[in-house]
Simulated assay, not measured.
Amino acid sequence: MTRPRRRAVLAGGLAAFVTGLTGCGTDDPPGVTVSSGTLRSAHLPGRDLAWVLAAPDDADVRRAPVVVLHGKGGSARSTLDTLHLQDHVAATGLAVAAVDGGDGYWHARADGTDSGAMVLEDFLPLLAREYGETDRVSLLGWSMGGYGSLLLASRLGPDRVVAVVAESAALWTDPGLSAPGAFDDREDFLAHDVFARRRLATLARLPVRLDCGADDPFVAANRAFAAALPSAGLTVDPGAHTGDYWRSHGGPQLEWLRARTDAAASA
């Protein structure tokens, strides 16, 4: 039986109101408990932000969780409904967690919203309460979230991030090439450019995996990013910018993160 829980939470000095619903659903994979709820954040005001957490029931150790950032038009539920990452939780022993981030490309915008800060200041503390400490996390994202995973990893750095997976990352090599709405203007692009030298220097200290389909419109920019960050591993294989491509890579990506997580824990 599931029980709803309601409580007020202070996260990062900002008031966040959380409604949680935790328990074993009838569609949970064997050995996995899927929890969900909503979050209020001052960084995305006036919205109930849904979150999900799929955690292993019998992991041999409590490993650093994987924070998943969705693509444009997606949501926290896309982690389960589109990528089906919960299907790989029991086998890898890695919890996966996601939260609604809107379409703001996971960084501060001119309208005052900042979905990246929401993740760092509100969602990570919530995840620590729901699952365990988040002193170390991994990041995984696709499309807009692939860009976001690289951006947030460059902010948190190796003391906090175990490893990063960016799948079909929405990357552009020039402000004039970026999609409408991805950035407020040229200055916003440059302020949050993952190609920037200081961000590349931080990411070079982290294990970074890039996957992109050969027919993906972002493949050229992903190749350019891999060239700029030689420490990253890039795989370009058959596929396009589709849910089928992302779903087919979820298992191998979590296995890759599991290996890096265990290596970091034993170092």
Rank of each mutant, 00 (worst) to 15 (best):
D216L: 00
T113H: 03
R62Q: 10
A182V: 07
L69A: 11
H84T: 11
G243Y: 01
G148K: 02
A232E: 02
H70Y: 05
P125N: 07
Y105I: 00
V32Q: 05
P158C: 14
V208S: 01
W172G: 00
A170C: 07
S138D: 05
L10S: 07
A91T: 04
A91G: 05
A108C: 15
R260L: 09
A64W: 04
T261D: 15
T82P: 04
E167I: 00
C24G: 14
L120I: 13
T22A: 13
R40H: 09
K72Q: 11
H88E: 00
R6Y: 09
R77E: 12
E121C: 12
L124C: 14
A64V: 10
A232P: 08
R136E: 08
K72M: 11
V165S: 10
A90K: 02
A16F: 03
L124G: 06
L150M: 04
S36P: 07
D27Q: 15
G239S: 03
T79L: 15
R247K: 05
G132N: 07
S248H: 06
F195Y: 11
V18R: 09
Y131R: 05
H43N: 12
L200T: 09
F225D: 14
G233H: 10
R77N: 15
Y147R: 00
L120P: 10
T22N: 15
G102E: 01
A16E: 01
R199S: 11
H249V: 00
V165R: 04
V89C: 06
D188M: 11
R258M: 04
R198C: 13
L10E: 10
M1V: 13
A166M: 02
L44C: 01
P158V: 08
D215C: 00
G31K: 02
P238V: 03
H88F: 03
F17E: 08
L140A: 06
A228L: 12
W142F: 06
A166D: 01
A169Y: 01
D114G: 15
S115P: 15
R209Y: 09
W256Y: 09
P180G: 13
G25S: 10
R5I: 14
R47P: 01
D185G: 10
F218N: 04
